[in-house]
Amino acid sequence: MVTVAISGMNARPDNPGPGVAVARCLREAADLDARIIGFGYDALDPGLYLTDYCDAGYLLPYPSAGDQALAERLEEIHKSDPFDVFIPCLDAELPNVLRIEQQLKKLGVRTWLPSEDQLKLRSKERLNELAAHAEIACPRTRGITQPDFFQRCDDEGWKYPLVVKGVFYDAYVAHSPADAAVAFNHIARTWGYPVLVQEHIKGEEYNLTGVGDGEGGLLGAVMMKKTGLTDKGKAWAGVAVSDQALLDAAQKLIKATRWRGPLEVEVIKSPSGTYHLVEINPRFPAWIYLSAGVGVNLPHALVNLALSRPLPAFGEPRAGTMFIRYALETIVDLGQFESIIVNGVRE
């Protein structure tokens, strides 16, 4: 048996983290006998209480507390509840995890993650450079720290609408300087500076998730078109697609970065058929359960890669397979909540 720790157990219906979906993929992976530990950042992260998917739940320090705080907490957890593989699922925690990878290795914890340099290459501020390198179109992006940019950005050739984004999360389409300033302030309060401004590309959004093998290869890509959006722009329904042009673009990116680890590529296909790279997320997406649904269980593949085991057999992803996301309540005993609050542990 192998014990896998997964973070990102937040799962608010309007904007879920990927952790529960990753755990669910592993639960359903044929020939994988896994014990699953969920890591959360709030006592109300539902994944911590979902015994179907997580055998234990723990709270971690916020990423802003730094890498050593994380290392200490993980060591403490590992002492009483050893785990073999760690799959971080949130963008904001990755810089910390990469900095403590060697410490984790000493504990015997394996990961399958990009290097710090690879992480920087795909950072939202630098996307233009990477896209140019991989010969993919990319909307103009820049980081700003002052909202007065929106008043004078016309002079620099920025046209409304434009997209205002946080370095880690959140994106809003702004149609006027006033809109943009509101989005800017909201993002800056939550995720700090810089705030990113991106040219708005008209067209249809497509997403691709896969795992980079670290040698330039892309394993088991699953592609998806969102068919229903929440008011935060997150998918609540989607359908698996098969698009060779998107796959080619993703392979170029993976090759250019020699990406190691999970990733999600977001592109917009303009009416003229050009693919514009919008974002590369260094983790599985919240819709990763679709990968199990189409017979390409990517989390399972990642665990095997981390453990140097042979890859599970993948089928050809079945285009047309759909998902529809729904919310349901789990019943939590006050004692379990108390345990999370007082000790940061649900056992």
Partner: peptide, 13 residues
């Protein structure tokens, strides 16, 4: 007091 969004004793170390 336990307030939603801040329920993590390990949160800010």
């Amino acid at each position: 007091a336990h307030r939603s969004g801040l329920l993590n004793k390990f949160g800010a170390v």
